[in-house]
């Protein structure tokens, strides 16, 4: 089932000071297959994305949290 709520991820970007393009580039580095426009549309609430794609974006953000001493604060799709 597609994930349609961008709220937690959008909030994480604000906390991390991360742009949509940076998040997308991080997701590309994790093997993600979304295009920048997909990420932008999801984060603005205009489009749902598959659970796997959501998990890749969440992982990209959670990796950034690990960099600053966090411990995977964002929930993955199966934890929503």
């Amino acid at each position: 089932m597609p994930v349609t709520d961008p709220g937690p991820l959008a909030a994480a970007l604000t906390v991390l000071g991360l742009t949509v393009e940076q998040l997308w580039l991080d997701s590309l580095g994790l093997g993600g297959n979304l295009e920048v426009a997909d990420v932008r549309d999801f984060l603005t609430g205009n489009k749902g994305i598959a659970e796997l794609d959501y998990d890749v974006l969440v992982q990209a953000a959670n990796d950034r949290f690990v960099d600053i001493g966090g411990d995977h604060p964002l929930a993955y799709a199966d934890e929503l």
Binding site: L30, D55, Q59, D63, V66, D71, H72, Y76
Partner: peptide, 20 residues
């Protein structure tokens, strides 16, 4: 492949290490 990614991300979460 998707399941393999899931295995990696769960290990990342369990050990609090980056997926890479």
């Amino acid at each position: 492949a998707p399941t393999a990614f899931d295995v990696l991300r769960r290990a990342s979460q369990r050990t609090n290490r980056k997926l890479h």
